[in-house]
Amino acid sequence: MSARMHGTPKGSTLLFATLILATIATWGMGSLGVTGTWGVAILAAISFWKGAVVILDFMALRHAPLLWRAITMGWIIVVWALITIAYIKGLAQ
């Protein structure tokens, strides 16, 4: 068996643990009142990475045809790009 469509229990447990740690980091940054361009960039990067794990590993799109992987990863890239543009626009107000 060269690859399991839905990964292995050990691999998914490791991913789950890192997702929880990333969530705690996001919550911690919010509680500490972290803001500013760099703070938002880190929050966006964490959220993007978590979304990518869910798309590629949990939804098993890593093993899907390239078009479907591109559409779903493209969605999260476009959404965060729009949020970033709006954030920068807000800074200029």
């Binding site: 399991r4 839905h6 990964g7 998914s12 969530t23 919550w27």
Partner: peptide, 26 residues
Amino acid sequence: RNAGALNTVLLLTASYFVVRAVQAAE
């Protein structure tokens, strides 16, 4: 924000459990 973070943990945990369910069926 605590409730929001807790809900993130709950949804991620549910997703992880679903992955394990699919792996178990495999």
